[in-house]
Amino acid sequence: MDMNKPLVGIVMGSDSDLPVMREASDILDELGVPWEMLISSAHRAPEKTANYARQAAGRGLAVIIAGAGGAAHLAGVIAGHTPLPVIGVPIASGALNGVDALYATVQMPPGIPVATVAINGAKNAGILAAQVVSAGLPEVRDKIIDYKEKMARQVDEKSTRLHELGIDGYLNARGGK
């Protein structure tokens, strides 16, 4: 894999999804995985979406993250047009606050898998994409190991601080309840 070209495609159905999907690009940056990003709707730009998915593997992408709200067919449409793994990010929106997007993303027919993260879970989608890429890139795998070790240290530090300060002192130090 060429670390000078994007390895992960991040696609969103609307610019309103950008604040959530940015979390995927942020964590990919932290883990040293190059990415590209675009807006392409499964419904409003179906040909653009299908062409992107069809060409992704040939351009060197290894995985695609697709985030959408509402009917959220973006990840499934992309998965139907590419051999690459697709990670769906259901985006909270509308009257159902993302539950509709979750169901639309996770309930795929046999033969068209979409790995699905939590509603607004773009950070986890980015980590999962990095883990997929790391199968062939030990330097990315090492960064993921470091990232997880850092999280574990943070939990230990919080536990130690809770023990030292007690519940009220800990909460007060955090700025309240």
Rank of each mutant, 00 (worst) to 15 (best):
P19L: 02
A173W: 01
V86Q: 02
A42I: 11
P110I: 12
A122G: 04
Y147D: 13
P19E: 05
Q107M: 13
R54F: 00
G88N: 04
S14F: 00
H81D: 09
I112S: 04
P34E: 04
I127W: 00
R54M: 12
D29V: 10
A152I: 13
R59T: 14
D142M: 07
L84P: 08
L18G: 03
H43A: 06
A57K: 15
S25V: 07
V155S: 06
L162H: 09
G166L: 00
R174L: 14
I127R: 09
I145N: 09
A71D: 06
K158C: 07
A42V: 11
A45L: 03
A115K: 01
L74G: 12
R44F: 00
K148R: 15
S134D: 10
V140P: 03
G70E: 03
G58Q: 14
Y170L: 04
A173G: 13
A130H: 08
V155H: 05
I78T: 12
S25H: 05
G80W: 00
D142E: 15
M1C: 11
A129Q: 10
R174C: 12
R44M: 01
I87M: 02
M12V: 14
E157W: 02
G111N: 08
G175M: 05
A95S: 13
M108P: 05
Y52C: 04
S14T: 15
S93M: 13
T160N: 09
P110H: 03
K158H: 08
G175N: 07
P46W: 02
V114I: 07
E164R: 15
E30T: 15
S159M: 09
R22Y: 06
D2Y: 01
K5L: 07
S93A: 15
G94C: 11
L96I: 08
P109M: 04
P138C: 09
G98N: 11
M108V: 12
V77R: 05
S16L: 00
K150G: 05
L74Y: 04
K150A: 14
V155L: 11
L96R: 15
D100T: 07
A79N: 02
A152E: 13
G175Y: 01
P85A: 06
M37W: 03
R54D: 03
R22V: 12
M21H: 09
I65T: 06
V11Y: 01
G88D: 09
A104Y: 04
R153P: 02
R22D: 14
A118N: 14
K143Q: 13
L165G: 07
G80M: 04
R161D: 10
S40Q: 11
T105I: 10
I78N: 07
V11F: 01
A118Q: 12
L38G: 14
E157F: 07
G111H: 01
G13H: 04
Q131P: 01
I144N: 06
S134R: 05
A92G: 06
A42W: 02
D142V: 11
R153F: 03
P6F: 05
I87N: 09
N97E: 14
G126I: 11
R174W: 00
P110M: 04
L128Q: 10
V117T: 15
L7V: 11
G80R: 10
